[in-house]
Simulated scan of single mutants.
Amino acid sequence: MSRLQFTVPPMPHYMLCGPVTYEPGRRHVSRRNIGVFDLLVVREGCLYMGEEEQTFNVEPGCALILRPDTSHYGTQGCKERTSYYWLHFQTTGSWTVTDDELPRHGLEPYDEKRTQAMWSYSTHTFQIQVPQFVKLLHPSKMDELFEQLIQLNQHFYSGSAKWSQQVVFQDVLRELSASMAKEESTPAAVCAALAAEYLRKHYREPITAQELGERLNFHPVYIARCMQRSYGCAPMEYLMHHRIEQAKLLLLQTDLAVARIAEEVGFNQAAYFTSCFTRTEGISPRQFRQRFYYG
């Protein structure tokens, strides 16, 4: 699946939208390098579209995003009455097209510049993805969002209306992203997500691979295989990483002793906590606190 990947901030921003109805025989106009992203959401009928060498049959409940830097065109006239929403949006940030899924979780080695950006007042960018073509998970919800945007168009020169439109547009992007995730969900991905959720929720408690398997009703080996595929690590490694992330917060936001923090995040022994923290982050817990302390 082709994905549009945006580096944020800045977030992609809404420009304008509206409804269109085509009678049988009418086709979408041909355009080149229009300079904005064009989101099409079909409500009834079918829109036959092409972009460069790719073709799409956009049926009811489906969404297609046409890129700002390519040529697109109608491949044939509509065979029946066809109605759809269109929406133009843009970004001032960087973006790309990819077939690769964003990693769900990364266990990255310690990097001083990256860590300083995360734990200081510097802006830390990240990536979001939306599908270029997808069958919507909740078509009726998308209809509601478009109707809200259209109503707000009537107050186009109002600052508060423009602000509201940007908020609603973020929900449109989330609906697209959720639809993509649903299409790609597999039993293995569901198992990995359940395991990760359980580990995050119970990270303060002693957890073994056997107990995790019993709680989720999956074999521990299967859970480990699923998490390795989805998160790039085994369950206990994921658990340790999450505990260390929680420990970072306590190191920065409290004056608790390192031994107490180790206990709070699920480590039985302070020495083992310090060893794991140092191996993962490249510095000890005390050094981490001293380096990023603003008091």
Rank of each mutant, 00 (worst) to 15 (best):
G50I: 08
Y294Q: 14
L64W: 04
F89I: 08
E183V: 07
S179F: 05
E175Q: 14
T92C: 08
R279V: 08
R200C: 12
A178R: 11
I283S: 08
L173H: 01
A234R: 12
I128D: 06
S120N: 00
W86Y: 15
L4N: 06
Y203H: 11
M240R: 14
Y14E: 05
L173M: 09
R81F: 05
R289K: 11
V258R: 01
T96Y: 07
R204F: 02
V29W: 02
S275R: 11
R43N: 11
V41T: 11
N153L: 01
E205H: 11
P60N: 01
E245F: 05
Y157E: 14
Q90N: 15
E184W: 07
L250C: 07
E144L: 13
E59D: 15
W119R: 07
Q129E: 14
I207R: 01
G106C: 11
E52K: 13
S160M: 12
Q90W: 14
Y272C: 00
K135H: 12
R200G: 09
L39E: 04
M227Q: 11
M240K: 13
Y222T: 15
R243S: 01
R229Y: 13
T123W: 02
E214P: 02
Q151D: 12
Y222W: 08
T70K: 13
Q166G: 04
M49I: 14
G35E: 02
W95L: 06
L152F: 03
F273H: 02
E80R: 06
Q129A: 14
V258T: 13
G35N: 03
F6P: 07
D38G: 01
L87V: 04
E112C: 04
A209I: 07
S2T: 13
H88W: 12
F133M: 04
R200E: 12
T208E: 10
A189H: 09
G77L: 07
F56K: 07
P139R: 04
Q148D: 08
H138M: 10
H28S: 09
L256F: 04
L4S: 09
Y203S: 05
A189Q: 12
L249T: 13
M11E: 15
T254N: 01
